[in-house]
Amino acid sequence: MKRDDRPLRLVAFDAVDLEPISAALQDAVAQLGDFQFSRREKAFTIAFNRFCWEAGRRDRRVRSGLQIGRVAAARSQNIRQGASDAVVNLLSIAFEPGEPPAGTVVLVFSGGGEVRLDVECLDVVMADLTAPWRAAGGRPVHEDGPEEGASRQ
């Protein structure tokens, strides 16, 4: 197995730890049906097809899971509820601190969608679940313009 084909497994317990997870998942795509919030388990999970930025010039995607733990509440804005087949494109993940160690994890999607998760503390795990495959459509491209930060797939 080549170095850039090894699965990523990243953990974040503070905002600095969250930055490489956000970078790895930039331009990851998911169906809304792959979002799950369990109040009982206090966990929010998403399965993504993420672009393998670490693969260099090779255009690869891999199935990855993201789990955010210790979630007290979840809310969304500009996300079509009940449209389980709708595809969203993740732009970034950030942590807004509150009363330490609590805060809000903010997932920002192209088109203005947002998921905000109130957490007791930051507890995030990202792990690749499959081997990489050749990315259809190639490398995501970002254009400046009215929707700066949006990407094409």
Rank of each mutant, 00 (worst) to 15 (best):
D34I: 04
M1T: 11
L107S: 02
G138H: 10
A131F: 13
D85F: 04
T130A: 07
A86G: 01
E54N: 07
A127P: 08
R50E: 11
S38Y: 14
V62F: 06
K2Y: 11
A12M: 10
V88G: 03
R134G: 06
D34S: 04
V29Q: 07
I68H: 04
K42F: 05
F109Q: 05
R40I: 14
S38L: 10
L129R: 12
I79G: 01
L10G: 04
T104C: 15
R80P: 07
A28S: 15
P7H: 09
R61M: 02
A72I: 01
P146A: 10
A131W: 11
G149E: 15
G65D: 11
H142D: 08
K42Y: 06
L10R: 03
V16N: 08
R6I: 05
C121S: 12
G65V: 13
G103Y: 10
G149S: 10
G137Y: 14
D128S: 00
L32R: 11
A24L: 09
Q67L: 12
P7N: 11
M1D: 12
G56M: 04
L10Q: 06
M1H: 13
V119H: 03
R50F: 10
K2C: 10
S64D: 07
V124K: 00
L91Y: 00
E41F: 12
I68F: 14
L32C: 08
R57H: 12
L90D: 01
F13M: 06
N78H: 06
G113E: 02
V88D: 00
L66D: 01
G138F: 12
P20L: 04
R80V: 14
Q77V: 15
Q81W: 07
E147I: 02
D128W: 03
R40T: 14
A86W: 03
E143W: 06
P20S: 10
G137K: 10
R9I: 11
G103C: 03
C121I: 01
P132N: 09
V16K: 08
K42P: 02
E114C: 11
F13W: 05
G145Q: 15
V105N: 00
S76C: 05
R152C: 11
V115D: 02
R152N: 06
N78T: 13
Q153Y: 11
S22T: 09
V106E: 08
W133K: 08
F109A: 09
A12V: 07
R3E: 14
C121H: 14
V141E: 14
V141M: 12
T130K: 05
D59S: 07
V106I: 13
R116W: 05
P100V: 04
V124S: 03
H142L: 15
D123Y: 07
K2H: 15
F95I: 02
C121K: 10
T130V: 06
D4E: 14
R58W: 10
V125Y: 09
D118P: 01
L117I: 01
D144I: 09
G112K: 05
E99G: 01
R9F: 14
G111R: 12
D85P: 00
A55P: 06
S84P: 08
A74G: 08
D5K: 01
G111A: 05
R58A: 09
L90K: 02
C121G: 15
P132H: 08
Q67Y: 09
R60G: 07
R3S: 15
R39N: 10
I68W: 07
V108M: 00
A43E: 05
D59L: 05
A86Q: 06
